[in-house]
Write a protein that binds this DNA or RNA. Structure first.
Length: 432
RNA sequence: GUGAGCUUAGCUCAGUUGGUUAGAGCACCAGGUUGUGGUCCUGGGGGUCGGGGGUUCGAAUCCCCUAGCUCACCCCA
């Protein structure tokens, strides 16, 4: 039989990888729950139409789709947001506001795999619906930062780059740029930092606008705070309003979280999608794709057939986060689950006593394991040690009677003889 | 869709201008140690050198084709 390998862009999760995946998910879930988000989920496949409706026919080339046996066009979910919108719309009137939901979804996209991007991945989403205004945006950013800190990351290692689609479009409109020039400016903004400075310079010079406009576009591009803006636009009320809203997002975070945040109008993201503040999290070495991205998308629910409803949220993938923790050696030291007890057995005659004791220990909520391949006592203890077990329990030693066992602390090397019922009692009391 | 690189043991990799029977470390298994663990010592299993074809007395090594993987561009909800 031919060996068949896993499909391109997918991963096998052997125990090592699975532990890391669970660790990521545990952090995401813990952080979400303590911020008051409720976990939701939808099907792993949806009607293909759900994605076409939003992104157009071209999206089909970028996802896994098939016809089911009833001839219905189906797609494996490439993201969760469309499912979320569908779920919200279905019960929109009945859901208490604001809606705060989170989800950890397995998603597939048919794309060429490369560093930080695979065909199957896990994505954490947090969304707040029914809340307009900067408080909800700040809450999303706060939760994302909370997760970063929970992973042990500092403001020296990662940063949140914050922009505002609305502020940016108002500013560009006020500069009097032509309709043809504005998309090109977005493109340049998006490319900045990804391609060499002289290329950026060249791209800007290619855009048709006056020298004054060009200079101002460059100024906006280079801005890393909002301080200069009011004088820049002569206290224009529209600009000021958007500026105030974006500043509030930062100030609501408080000094501690705001230290992670930097204003960067280079954050563009999906043009059709976002309507207000947008942000992405990057590692500061700049070697990885974004760790997390989000923003305000007030049109989504209406576009999905519901009543207009403000919404904001973010998504974070497991692949890039894993790469970052790899490169920083920031995984927790020991994710290996260690059993509390290894019940070993000296003589064949006592073998039948092993599993019953193991089961008693397990029923008390402790983890207990034992030999399954007839190892001698030396091998059993060797195995127990290799697995980092806390206590070794020896049954059938000539040093003790039938209702006794030897309890060995694998770390301190202390041994003592103890009656089985006393052992179980101590375990129950929590003294062992 | 475009371009580049890589492929030798389960993993990470050596392998000299082509030259005996293809190696190391780690991992795994066993013994030293048949009633007590980490170290150590000894041994063992495991390779169609990605696949196919060609050149040659001789190919892991050179040439051609092909597959797979990786990286970058495009795209990125």
């Amino acid at each position: 039989m031919a060996k068949i390998s896993a499909p391109k862009g997918t991963r096998d999760f052997y125990p090592d990888e699975m532990r890391r995946r669970r660790y990521l998910e545990d952090v995401w879930r813990r952080v979400s729950l303590r911020a008051g988000f409720e976990e939701v989920d939808g099907p792993i496949f949806e009607s293909l139409e759900l994605y076409i409706q939003k992104a157009g026919e071209e999206i089909v080339t970028q996802l896994y789709n098939f016809e089911d046996k009833g001839g219905r066009p189906i797609a494996i979910r490439p993201e969760f947001t469309q499912s979320l919108a569908r779920m919200v719309v279905a019960r929109q009137a009945a859901l208490p506001r604001p809606i705060k939901w989170f989800n950890i979804s397995r998603c597939c996209r048919y794309e060429r795999a490369q560093k930080g991007r695979l065909r199957e991945f896990f994505q954490w989403n947090c969304d707040i619906l029914g809340a307009e205004g900067p408080a909800a945006d700040a809450e999303c950013i706060a939760v994302a930062i909370d997760a970063l800190q929970e992973f042990g990351l500092t403001k020296e290692q990662v940063e949140v780059r914050l922009s505002s689609r609305k502020l940016l479009s108002v500013m560009l409109a006020k500069l009097g740029l032509s309709d043809a020039a504005i998309p090109k400016v977005y493109l340049v903004l998006d490319k900045r930092g990804k391609v060499p400075a002289d290329v950026i310079h060249h791209m800007i010079n290619e855009i048709e606008m006056t020298e004054d406009q060009r200079k101002r576009v460059v100024d906006i591009m280079d801005m890393s705070s909002l301080d200069g803006l009011p004088s820049f636009f002569g206290d224009d009320p529209e600009v000021l309003e958007q500026l105030r809203e974006l500043s509030q997002v930062v100030s609501l975070l408080g000094d501690d979280a705001a230290q992670f945040v930097r204003i960067d109008f280079g954050i563009v993201r999906g043009l059709a999608y976002y309507t207000g503040p947008v942000w992405e999290v990057f590692d500061k070495t700049g070697t990885l794709r974004s760790l997390c991205g989000g923003g305000r998308y007030d049109n989504l629910i209406a576009a999905s057939g519901g009543k207009a409803m403000p919404a904001c949220g973010f998504g974070a993938g497991d692949v890039t986060m894993g790469l970052l923790l790899d490169s920083l050696h920031a995984w927790p030291n020991d994710l290996t689950p260690r059993a509390d007890f290894y019940v070993s057995c000296v003589q064949a005659a006592s073998v039948s006593k092993v599993l019953p004791l193991v089961r008693r220990l397990r029923s008390l909520g402790r983890s207990a394991i034992h030999d399954l391949i007839s190892s001698n006592i030396a091998r059993q203890i060797k195995n127990a040690d290799a697995m980092g077990v806390r206590y070794n329990v020896v049954i059938g030693s000539h040093k003790c009677s039938d209702d006794e066992v030897i309890l060995g602390n694998m770390r301190t090397h202390e041994e003592r003889t103890i009656r089985i019922q006393d052992l179980l009692k101590s375990v129950q009391d929590g003294t062992i």
